[in-house]
Design a protein around this nucleic acid. Sequence first.
RNA 1: GCCCUUGUAGCUCAGCUGGUAGAGCAAUUGAUUUGUAAUCAAUAGGUCCGCGGUUCGAAUCCGUGCGGGGGCACCA
Length: 638
Amino acid sequence: MPIIKLPDGKTLEFNKAVSGKEIAEKISKSLSKQALIMTVDDELKDLSYLINNDSSVKIITPKDSEGLDAIRHDTTHIMAMAVQELFPGTKIAIGPAIKDGFYYDFSRKEPFTLKDLEKIEKKMRQIIEKDEPTKREVWERKKAKEHYKKIGENYKVELVDSIPEDQEVSVYYHGKWYDLCKGPHLSSTGKIGKYFKLTKVSGAYWRGNSNNEMLQRIYGTSWPSQKELDEYLKRIEEAEKRDHRKLGKEMDLFHFREESPGSVFWHEKGWSLFQKLVSYMRKKQDQAGYKEINTPEILDRSLWEKSGHWEKFGENMYTSETPDEKIFAIKPMNCPGCVQVYNQGLKSYRDLPLKMSEFGKVHRYEPSGALHGLLRVRAFTQDDAHIFCTEDQITEECLSVTNLILEIYKDLGFENVILKYSDRPEVRVGEDQVWDKSEAALLKAVKASKLEYSINKGEGAFYGPKIEFVLRDAIGREWQCGTLQVDLNLPERLGASFVDRDGSKKIPVMLHRALFGSLERFIGILIENYSGKLPFWIAPLQVMVIPVSEDFDTYAKEVNQKINNIGINSEVDLKNHNLNYKIREHSMAKIPLLLICGKKEVDSNTVTIRRLDSNKQENMEVKTFLKKFAALNRAPSN
RNA sequence: GCCCUUGUAGCUCAGCUGGUAGAGCAAUUGAUUUGUAAUCAAUAGGUCCGCGGUUCGAAUCCGUGCGGGGGCACCA
């Protein structure tokens, strides 16, 4: 006589074992129609699962994230079934639901083509049409293994092996096709609806290990309704429109070329944006007590051996050989150089904390497949700094770094920031006790920041634990930017010290921190966040002055000169095109302000402003304009 | 690095099964003097990514290298 407790607190009593389907029907007709799976005492189960004992039950519908996952999981099973029917001999590996969709990994000699995807989709629709019931069976572990061995599904054999001993080995059937699967699944193939689409094929290593063979992965997306599917596809399209590679070209900011893959050729406008960010940060760092330094880009191999980079990071380092056969490395990080500057002259505890910043250009030989526009490059400028301090100062210094970073993000329009804390990796330098100390101090700062955070086990830098600052952009994507790392190893390796209060020599702690991480990457993120429509104060070309006709060229030139004189980047468009044409052209170039000058303006000594993304006209005296926009030509916090 | 895919004018792209390239926009020149998202016309513009091969003949087919894109792995 199970008593079923529902999420709203109500209870239902049954006089025999009861299935989810029956419970849903008892609650309401509409719920039973929408029901996909259920949770029994927080465990996901098929609706057909029979409940014998008193339990808490929640019926899952497409509105729940578990429901959405179930739909996607079912869709991927149906895809795998379609693939095996269409392409006999194809072996199947794994096929989970993922964010916004699903994938399944296959092993087959011939590559799947986009045409194949169409065929597979068609087959899937046929399978769904048949609406065959999905059934679950529990198999003996041994039977499952032998069975899969017999039919040559070697990936499934491995998967059976990896199921923990205390768990059942279950298999799900739709029609004749079956798959090793933990479940749960919808009750029949027709339940998933028809709102799915196969999106792409790619390679993927078996079990995510690059030593294993490469499988073929087919990705798809699946939703409870046409509306949601359309919305998703629209979202993808919108994201593509924001692509900084496309906008960077359109806005004439930068380009890449074969001669230096992964390195940016900055054009005038892009570089102007870059420099605006640098001078903004200089100002912020000055105010926060940083001292800016600069160190060589090429340093002798011996320094990198001492610092540990040669051994731990060598694979990613560019090296150069001189005519006299000396080996130099092009710096992949600024820290060793910075320590050398610290090491000049004796330091006292009174000098600490000592904050040394550096806009250092670093080079890292990233794997070719990792390169991605400005977001992943081989040469980039870090807004780097190293803070030398005592162990007692770690937490406080970390907090002040966090505050600085948050203020800077806010100025640039990012208010939604989360932290990722990473502790010791497997490959590392330094004693475990040292790691214990650094990890504890950093974690304390993380907690004190009161920001949302997650812990990434084993993902710290080889010299110390770290936190990463992740920001969410206008369309909800997360970008890892700033970083803060505690380093109790490098100062010792490179012989840094200070004289303490008692006259003894001690080794300082070093904090590595970067605000944006990489200027290049951050600019990419900025462009995507704003769809290229950058805030006025940071836009490379801020104003375009447009005379209505040739007669007003002189006036337009004068206005342009006055604007440039107060430090706003302005140009005047004297080309022989009509007004409509120019407005269209410069709007598409995403210039924040267009100033129209015609007879009316000349007579009244005014300009008419048209702001990007608005067709309102705003007339203003030139004097007023200059005053107003001079004030807007700096960061909100300044 | 691995799998798939792709590389034609400054840009976006067309060019079927092999017969030495084409459009729109941009550029230049001329006409037009324009009041809030494309005025008209003319002109010029290309080692069809590089190298090698097949062929009487290659942008097109094959091989290879390099680059781009989508993933996987990587991201100290």
